[in-house]
Amino acid sequence: MSDRMTPAARGDRVLAGYAWLVLALLVLPLIALIPISLGDSPTVSVLPDKLSLRWYREVLGGAEWRSAFWWSLATASVATLISTSIGYLGAYAIVHSQSRLKGMLEVLMLMPMMVPTVIVAFSTYVLATWMPANATWLMISVGQGLLGLPVATLIIAASLRGIDGTVIRAAVSLGGDRRQVFAFVTLPMAIHGIVSAAALSFLIAFDELLIAVFLTRPGIETLPVRIYDSVTYELTPAIAVVSVFLMALVCLAMLAGEVIRRLAANAAVNAPQ
């Protein structure tokens, strides 16, 4: 290596080193989970004496963890449905309404972001006590959907704002009724925003702990609650296994998204003549 580097080149190297350091700090704790999950003993160790898939068998084979995973999937899915659909309606009103109450609506839609989550959790809990017991899981979804609402609204509003108003005018003038304009024009043009909003709402709901803790009861336990409990009472590599499993899911989802994006781009370029 030459000692006669320009100051700019040296600056680049320092910056690159710094970037790698930050990246390492962010990623290392996650990567460390992989060897932990492969341990054989019930104690958590970054460098296990013996590698085995014992905890994988225990977690993936165990009814408790599997049931927690399915509960999480169910509540998060319903929560996604709630925040995306209400978010779309709210966003549409915020973008297109001429009403003077519009500003108030905007604040209202963003409220769950400003109110501490524990308050949302508590009020959901109070509401749930008035509901039949078998609707509890639905109340978890409602609470989690509420948390996803602000982000969903903001993203969908941004994509609705991106639609040229004359395109909608054209759709109306050419004879489409409200439903047709929505189905054939608005929805397809806003679909990127809606899918992003749904994905983020799902992640927020899937990750959510407080509401689920407040509303948890025997037989209804989401994955974050299960993890929390197991950290509190019995710290084993099982948690590392669950974490690795979730990371793998996220990686797969991102990979799938990228593949779909590329396929779509290719299809657009190679459209038949």
């Binding site: 004359t166 395109v167 005018r169 054209a170 759709a171 003038s173 050419l174 489409g176 047709q180 024009v185």
Partner: peptide, 26 residues
């Protein structure tokens, strides 16, 4: 009435044929 707008206002997600078919489809 058929309207041609200043910036054409074509539906960007539809092909030429789908754009033209829209008034008949609705």
């Amino acid at each position: 009435m058929g309207i041609v707008f200043q910036n054409y206002a074509l539906f960007p997600h539809m092909t030429v044929a789908q754009n033209v078919a829209y008034p008949l489809k609705v």
